[in-house]
């Protein structure tokens, strides 16, 4: 991670952040992927993933975080999440119904089970994670650029 001394918080916060931010991100991904076998799921995991980026913004300033995930890319990921979720729902017509679970469901309590639910979880986590990050960045940047975008 960058060695900027001028921006962000003190060296202690930066060091701790450097150590923990990856873990937070990983934990978020874990929550998403195990959404169908344990408590959690797309929304909770997506929020945790966002928090890792918010963490970066708080410790290092917004430039470092925006270098990792720019606003345009966050917006792209958000839309992809929504479209992915909708396509899963529409593909359900193959199984006869909108939203039907057309993939074999497998054994309960296994990672690869439950048909479309893990995929939907991933889509939701993309949508929520990127969307929440967009909201955060938009609110942070709103003060600096009066014309900046304002999204839901």
């Amino acid at each position: 991670m960058s060695r900027e001394k001028t921006k962000g918080m003190s060296i202690i916060v930066k060091t701790i952040t450097r150590l923990t931010v990856g873990l937070v991100l990983l934990y978020g991904i874990y929550i998403v992927l195990h959404g169908h076998v344990s408590p959690g799921g797309g929304f909770a995991g997506g929020v945790i993933i966002t928090l890792s980026f918010v963490h970066l913004v708080l410790a290092y300033g917004k430039d470092t975080a925006l270098k990792k995930l720019s606003k345009a890319r966050a917006s792209f990921l958000e839309n992809m999440g929504a479209i992915l979720f909708l396509s899963i729902a529409l593909l359900g017509f193959m199984g006869g119904y909108f939203f039907s679970n057309f993939i074999p469901k497998g054994e309960p309590f296994h990672l690869f089970s439950a048909g479309i639910i893990p995929i939907s979880n991933i889509a939701i986590s993309l949508k929520v994670g990127a969307g929440l990050f967009s909201i955060f960045v938009a609110l942070v940047l709103l003060k600096l650029k009066p014309t900046s975008e304002k999204k839901k």
Partner: peptide, 9 residues
Amino acid sequence: LAGAFLIAL
């Protein structure tokens, strides 16, 4: 819904 997100994309 599909239209909305395609336009956003």
